[in-house]
Amino acid sequence: MESVDVILGRGWRAAKVLSGVDLRIWPGEIVGLVGETGSGKTTLARTVVGLVPPARGRIVFDGTTISSLRPRARRAVRRRGHVQLVFQDPLRSLDPDLTVDEIVGEGLRIRGEADSAEIRRRVIAALEQVGLDATLLDRTPGQISGGQRQRVSIARALAADPRLLICDEPVSALDASSRNYILRLLQQLRDSLGLPIVVISHDLSSLAGIADRVVVLYRGRIVEDGPVEQVFAAPRHPYTALLMASAPSVRHDRPLSPRQLRRADADPAPPDSPDACVFAHRCPFAAAACAEQPALELVGDRWSVACHRREEWGALARNRAR
């Protein structure tokens, strides 16, 4: 994705959901996409699949600029199924009246490239890849457990032989144990198929277990993008640090507390300008420079941050009351 803007709605309702998003996904990479409700994570996923046309910028997939294709050609690209989406709540995203067999094979049947024996073979192969056996084929989503349902939605995506898998909050609706099972499964798929995977999640701690790179989105802008180990060891954007400090922990040994990273009423008012940094209104470290939106700048190998005060806020935060 190159400097992509997405505007949803028209006229006075129009809202810029993504601004200037640059994102590259390399083969065999697991990218964790993090951000709060309304930050544009889901819109980003829908834009990559081609469900939402960008207002500006380019989306290139395997050398083809899909954002400039005409609707008919774009639909043909979508039908090929090279980019697959897995949704948050499998109970709501899977048709309750279809059997597992019908759900997993539906895309193949619509494409009409294979006969029914071949489809059957590929359905069973996809189920095997997610650790389910053929005894589930005739069940409906209501008759299997939550973890199994999410595995069925991943099998449905795999049956199309994708070259990019995007999982939108794949584990938020699951218990901790099934959550880890699904994340491990994604990691195995990447290892065995070399499949690049984008995982949208708000659980940073489990992302740390599987992702290679983490991309932090705030109000439609990427504020930090870098290798997961380095970013989580020493985040360079105050919002990434706030997300980490707020994550529940049984260890109680956070380097910074959420309060040190949250605006207090006593803090000086943030710069009030239409171009101000998207995070300035919540940032206790906002200064005059923050009246202008900072660009993403490289701070290390493949690590970039959009913050004017990236060198100063760390020391300031440590001096605030916990």
């Binding site: 901790a176 144990s177 099934s178 959550r179 880890n180 099972y181 994340l183 491990r184 659980d203 940073l204 701690s205 489990s206 740390a208 277990g209 599987i210 997961v228 180990e229 989580f232 060891a233 980490m244 994550a247 529940p248 922990s249 049984v250 260890r251 109680h252 040994d253 956070r254």
Partner: peptide, 20 residues
């Protein structure tokens, strides 16, 4: 013990995700 091992324990290091 299992729940503690699978919980998001506030660990931001790369690790193996365990399941019950």
């Amino acid at each position: 013990r299992g729940l503690l091992q699978v919980a998001s324990v506030g660990d931001f290091r790369r690790r193996e995700l365990l399941v019950i």
